[in-house]
């Protein structure tokens, strides 16, 4: 999903860069104002884990692979704003040091994977969660389904960027069909990895999972049963 240099023209890439910088600035402000102090180390871990998980390409169809994008995973763990920052840092490190994703396309990649993934993906997660009972299993399920949809959301936004400034010859309809088709498949892996990881953290420290904050998840202690607002 990392756009290399030269796929999308300079104007569209610059526009993507502007959107990315503006939105990341907003995420920095909200993280400063809203992040729970206890989550600081978890934000670091989330970013590092997404970097590692993005190296694990799994086969999805003949001659095609996919890897975790991680936006929903990060957003459910540490909140959408810090989650978007965590994925953005991964993309910056990849573009600057690992030659993965073009430098000129960095803004577009931040938009598609960090912002659509974490902010858009968290909105989908929250909508699904609202329909389900307030249980740990609901958080895992909502995260898995939202994550399964996130690569397709990124593919749709990529198609819009291609429509605005793609340098290729294929029609927008062709690109849309091909991109959405393969990313629906990649979404199966994204959803499974996200659900498994959230489930593992929920089993250990549910109180640290931002997406589970609506459930009373404090460790059981003597008189912790009554009067705890949900």
């Amino acid at each position: 999903m990392h756009i290399p240099d030269g796929f999308i023209d300079g104007t569209t890439s610059a526009f993507g860069g502007g959107v990315a910088v503006g939105t990341v600035a907003g995420c920095l402000r909200r993280t400063r104002d809203l992040l729970d102090d206890r989550q600081v180390p978890l934000v670091g871990l989330t970013s590092a884990f997404v970097f590692a998980a993005q190296m694990l390409n799994f086969p999805v169809a003949a001659g095609t692979s996919g890897h975790l994008l991680g936006g929903v995973l990060a957003a459910v763990l540490v909140g959408p704003w810090a989650g978007a920052l965590a994925v953005s840092v991964v993309l910056v490190v990849q573009a600057l040091l690992f030659a993965d994703g073009g430098l000129s396309a960095l803004g577009l990649n931040v938009v598609n994977m960090a912002l659509v993934g974490a902010l858009g993906g968290y909105a989908v997660f929250a909508a699904i969660r609202a329909l389900l009972p307030k249980t740990k299993a609901s958080v895992v399920a909502a995260a898995g389904v939202a994550a399964a949809l996130a690569p397709t959301m990124a593919a749709i936004v990529f198609t819009a960027e291609y429509a605005l400034g793609g340098n290729g010859a294929a029609s927008v309809a062709t690109v849309a069909k091909a991109m959405i088709g393969v990313h629906l498949l990649i979404g199966v892996g994204e959803g499974a990895i996200t659900a498994m990881t959230i489930s593992a953290v929920m089993a250990t420290r549910p109180d640290l999972v931002h997406g589970a904050a609506h459930i009373a998840t404090r460790a059981p202690s003597r008189d912790d049963t009554a009067g705890v607002p949900a």
């Binding site: 999903m1 990392h2 756009i3 290399p4 240099d5 030269g6 796929f7 390409n57 086969p59 999805v60 001659g63 095609t64 692979s65 996919g66 890897h67 573009a95 600057l96 040091l97 030659a99 993965d100 994703g101 073009g102 430098l103 690569p151 593919a155 990529f158 291609y162 793609g166 340098n167 290729g168 010859a169 294929a170 062709t174 690109v175 091909a178 991109m179 393969v182 990313h183 498949l185 990649i186």
Partner: peptide, 23 residues
């Protein structure tokens, strides 16, 4: 194998303008 975007790009010639990364 190439990831989803790279595969689509190769199949449908989205990569005609592709340049190697600066780094």
């Amino acid at each position: 194998s190439p990831d989803g975007l790279d595969k689509v790009a190769a199949d449908h010639q989205l990569d005609t303008g592709k340049r190697a990364s600066t780094v």
